[in-house]
């Protein structure tokens, strides 16, 4: 930009604009433009705030999934894990509320983080020590976590104690300088994720393990450790999402987080992360999560699509986005 920034002319690949990397952001911009044309209410402050806030859960979990996927694994259990962690947190908070009052929320959140990390650790250890395909392992734990929340709730719902609702409510509905709190939390998670993935040795090893696990192994990288840690990060992200989620509806039910794993994986892949590992795009993941939410929003806002065909249109848009990815480079 200015002459002051000119340093030695070392060729830096990052400085060129890569259109392939811009893909998800262009797609997001395109969807938003279409939305504006379809319905002027789409760009209203409330609607934009709603959509961005809603996408927080998928975005936060998808940041974790970006680690798992870029390390060459997969986690199908995140939706169920989310429901399970939510249930444990609410039960803890309700149990502690009589003695601790609103502080129970803090303790409950801490317990949630521990439980989330433990769930992730479980997935990671089975995958790495057991040397079993991640797909099958997390398909199994998906069922386990889902059954546990159903059992904890007797198939009904686990509502948070009435006394905790009001102190906890701002975590979803509140805002910081006009920015909804879940969005702030998402930004923090994304920044932390981008830092770890792009700027630390761990991130480097994570992508090496996904890019070619043999090369990583031959270079002295402990692939098992790297992948296990990726699952733990995923578990922590799930717990953070759960912390933001509880105040929204104040209950955990057996349908909480149902099919979120597919949305999460879709967001990650739309964002430009390779499903086979080795290439991670954290900001692309965020764009992917936003694209999914915006499309769902548009389906309601527009009157073009029959309610019976909404899912088909969403599917077509996702496939088009991936095709654009492929041919844009």
């Amino acid at each position: 930009m200015t002459s002051a920034t000119s340093t030695r002319a070392t060729p830096e690949p990052g400085r060129r604009i890569r259109w392939a990397d811009m893909g998800p952001f262009l797609a997001l911009a395109l969807v938003i433009v279409i939305g504006t044309l379809i319905n002027s209410n789409f760009v209203s402050g409330t609607n934009i705030a709603n959509v961005v806030t809603r996408s927080a859960f998928i975005a936060i979990i998808a940041v974790g999934a970006t680690f798992v996927i870029s390390s060459g694994c997969l986690d199908l259990s995140v939706g169920s894990m989310m429901a399970f962690v939510t249930g444990i947190m609410i039960l803890t908070m309700n149990r502690l509320e009589p003695s601790m009052g609103a502080n129970a929320i803090l303790v409950g959140a801490a317990v949630g983080l521990v439980v989330g990390a433990a769930c992730g650790l479980l997935n990671g250890l089975i995958v790495t020590l057991g040397k079993i395909e991640p797909f099958i392992v997390t398909l199994g734990t998906m069922g386990i976590f889902r059954a546990l929340i159903t059992w904890l709730s007797d198939g009904g719902s686990i509502p948070i104690a009435r006394e905790l609702r009001d102190p906890y409510r701002p975590v979803y509905f509140g805002n910081l300088f006009g920015v909804p709190l879940p969005v702030v939390i998402t930004l923090i998670v994304v920044l932390a994720g981008a830092f770890i993935l792009y700027r630390t040795k761990y991130g480097r090893r994570c992508m090496a393990a996904g890019s070619n696990s043999d090369v990583a192994r031959f270079s002295g990288v402990s692939v098992a450790w790297v992948r296990t840690l990726a699952y733990v990060i995923q578990g922590l992200c799930v717990a953070i999402a759960a912390i933001c989620y509880i105040p929204r509806l104040g209950a955990a039910t057996p349908t909480t987080g149902a099919l979120w794993e597919l949305q999460v994986i879709t967001a990650v892949v739309i964002g430009g992360t390779l499903l086979r590992g080795g290439k991670a795009r954290i900001w692309g993941t965020v764009a992917g999560a936003l694209i999914l939410e915006v499309i769902a929003n548009l389906m309601v806002m527009s009157n073009f699509v029959s309610e019976y065909l909404v899912a088909a249109v969403q599917g077509v848009i996702i496939i088009l986005a991936m095709l654009a990815h492929r041919f844009i480079r």
Binding site: N50, L249, T256, V300, M301, V310
Partner: peptide
């Protein structure tokens, strides 16, 4: 004004209602 699926799910109903509110004054 509108009839859409929300799959008997609290979360989806929450989102759908938000969208209805944005769409219809």
């Amino acid at each position: 004004l509108d009839i859409q699926y929300a799959n008997w799910n609290q979360d989806e109903a929450f989102k759908l209602m938000q969208d209805y509110l944005a769409k219809y004054p």
